[in-house]
Design a protein around this nucleic acid. Sequence first.
RNA 1: GCGGACAUGGCGUAAUCGGUAGCCGCGCUAGACUUAGGAUCUAGUUCCGAAAGGAGUGGGGGUUCGAGUCCCCCUGUCCGCACCA
Length: 979
Amino acid sequence: MEYNFNEIEARWQKAWREQGVYRTVESEGRPHYYVLDMFPYPSGAGLHVGHPLGYIASDIYSRYKRLRGFNVLHPMGYDAYGLPAEQYAIQTGQHPAVTTEQNIARYREQLDKIGFSFDWDREVRTCDPQYYKWTQWTFIQLFKHYYDNTAAKALPIAQLEARFAQQGTEGLDAACSDELAFSADEWNAYDETKRQQVLMNYRLAYLADIPVNWCAELGTVLANDEVVGGLSVRGGYPVERKLMRQWSLRITAYAQRLVDGLEQVEWTDSLKEIQRNWIGRSEGAAVWFPLYKEADCKPWMLGGSMADCKYPNENPEPVPAFEIFTTRPDTIFGVTFMVLCPEHELIEQITTPEKRDEVTQYVTWAKNRSERERQAEVKKVSGVFTGAFAVNPLTKERIPIYVSDYVLAGYGTGAIMAVPAHDSRDFAFARHFNLPIRQVVSSQWPVASGQWPVEGDPSTWTESLDSKTGYSVGSGFATGMKVKDAMAAVIDKIEEMGIGHRTVNFRLRDAIFSRQRYWGEPFPIFYKDNMPCPIPEECLPLELPEVTDFKPTATGEPPLGHAQRWAWDEANRCVVETSRIDHKTVFPLELSTMPGFAGSSGYYLRYMDPRNDEEYFSQRAVQYWQNVDLYVGGAEHGTGHLIYARFWNKFLFDLGLAAKDEPFQKLINQGMIQGRSNFVYRSKQDNNLYISKGLIQNMADVTPIHVDINIVDNDVLDMEKFRAWRPEFADARFELEDGKYVCGWEIEKMSKSMYNVQNPDDLVARYGADTLRLYEMFLGPVEQAKPWDTGGIEGVHRFLKKLWKLYDRVEVGGSSSEVASALRPPTSELKVLHQTIKKITDDIERFSFNTSVSTFMICCNQLTDLKCSDPEVLKPLLILLAPFAPHIAEELWHRLGETASVCTAQWPECDERYLVEDTVNYPVQFNGKMRFTLALPAAATQQDALAAVLAAPESAKWLGAGEPKKVIFVPKKIINIVC
RNA sequence: GCGGACAUGGCGUAAUCGGUAGCCGCGCUAGACUUAGGAUCUAGUUCCGAAAGGAGUGGGGGUUCGAGUCCCCCUGUCCGCACCA
């Protein structure tokens, strides 16, 4: 009988759907396991073969866990909000909801054909009001909470208000935008507007004027991870820094927990490292440098006591001073100048009149420079002297203050102490402006008095000495200490002097949460007296209004500015016509929408209880499933989604909603599948002549042109299809080799424009879903990036055909073995079976699915050689195969007389008795001595090993009469004996 | 520049604990069956060599009875971050 995969697969997919085999219900007592895929953005291009790679791997693991008796949650949904649908809408006027719906339908159709075991009853879509209700709800909770560093968790903002009323900011350690200090009396005297402004400084979702990545082309701001090299990730348009009033999430409050949490999860080291780098924790010191003024600071210069020092935190009349952050407090004695970023607020105050023009000119130039220009010219030194000086609090020396854009406003305090001898950027700056370079770290100690350290005169150096290994020199009390000790000693001194403190700085920035776009979750916020107010939670979801135009308004407002009904009637608690806004009872609603990562930050929790109208998810569900056990997806989300989702989860954990602090216990990054593009070569002399690859003498004579891989087979061009492909090729002539036109090829990103997109549907139609599933796994390790190449798919398909034949011989209902399998002698067939059980089980446990496919092939070949027709052997094999190739496994399972689905069978146990290896003895000559190697049972000891050697029939031959000189015993397997 | 990962036949890869390197598949070679084959089956296929034999896991060194695997140095590829003080 023929292996008619199309018929079999369609029939079983229908049967599984009708029987609801993949429906998951929480059931106490059964062990649970949650396998999650990163849900796709349904783009217009449909699925390509890269998408299912991770889905197949996770599907195999889910099915395996199910067969092992676990209650498995394996859901799927769509990340349906996003820019492409909106860009398409702007161009065509087609509503994004319509295109999104169409794309989802197409994705679903493609996914269904591959035979996944998703529980579609739990599907979520981020653009569904019943889903984004809870995205909006979470946003309101973030708005209503602040992060208390002492409690190390989020607390209700009401508690903060109560605290302010009682004790002001006294003793408060909370995440905030600006450090504020006020008393209870002051707080109580504030009016409502002032209070709201203060609270905004602490809210976890807050509105503030902040420098943002503005993309004029897309008409929206972007998050840091959406910008690479000054260009937008989507579209590649230029991005500029701009100060705008935007919603942000205070993700920095969780920076330390986001770093610490990485210790608890099973992710790859590289991904953990990507996150650590992105969060960028660095330890160091914050130090106040006072401004030098001839009049009142003279005593410091004259060696006066530091007690005379006027620092802002202890002086009722603050001396202008600025705070810097450094990771190298030990080098403070080597500071020879200071640098402020062009945006620094003190520049205005400190610049001397004669320098004012020059400084203003520089600051204006620096601010207008695009992010792209700035990054492109990193090596170019630029800057300007302010004319002002600061005082080094330890050496009490007067040091000049410069402005330069190599100091970034966004990191630390936007001001640095410059140590040119030990920082390469400061070194370059000092060389350019001819500033002194003073060595305070040397690789050698001691240093003879009056002599240079081993490195010699710093003015002759060609580069700075940035290493943290070595000893402090010329550093007062720290001289002679190792760098590490000097760091601690200097910080201690600084704290003792009250001019600074030990601190930790993070590179991570708060996440900008507003997007000036239409196709996203509306903010559940209206504006009353210009202050944002959340709409009542009972009124959620606040549904996205209809608009006819998806472009920004003429006045530059986001597209929601076009909406006819987009105002909040506070008394009647409903959305009303925009025209009714009177700022008394009807207020304007927020016009921005939320970014793409909003909806994807909590979707894994919603899957646990997706149809719940009362709550995000019930405690019963979350206590049952806890968190995601296995998450499969691309590493490209390492600095985006995977950070935001962890933050989101930690916040919900603080609220007592999420069950675990970390959302994703184990994470596997599937490698990207690259495309394999094909080229034809057009002659430069003759525009209709195409030369086969092997006949090209000089590549300069031809133009390579991308050609659709669907009209090329094994690099051989189908010339008729090529002529029909596009009008300009209709008259194409070919120069052939061996009667064939051979195309060139290259590995590139899989993309429509390179005509190298391999569509899974075509492969399913030609080879079947099972072949596609097996082949995608067979390509190589799931984690590895690899080019798509259909060259080997025939081999996998051939295996399934052989397997089909193997089972075709078996007589249905024929005599199953009369002897119980446990008592049967270890025949070769059973040996093959149990070896396969062991290997497949081990492979799946360590996600080595490519070797599993090889194992099946070997097993099938061996059983074919043995002419195996024993159902006792063949049935368990189908259970092993079911996670990988469920359709054929199910079909054969039923042919062997089973009536229940193979998807609900019991994973076979491996019987170790069938695994005993045949003993292989062989001697090896080495260095003139004879070594003897012998396989041993697993539990063998050193004594057993020696006895086995002496007892082995070959031993006398090799050992002679003497005892072995040396026995090296390797547990389990092999010993070597040197005679 | 900093950080991470990787490097094995013509190709994708395997070798789970340091234990006969190259499993499985593709491709290729030869043969069988066939009117025919892009079907199926059989045999072969790391390299050099007619063979005997020798060499061999990017290069160099080390540890070990034994290294693809562990350690050090170098080279190359890929990825992440990048004026982060």
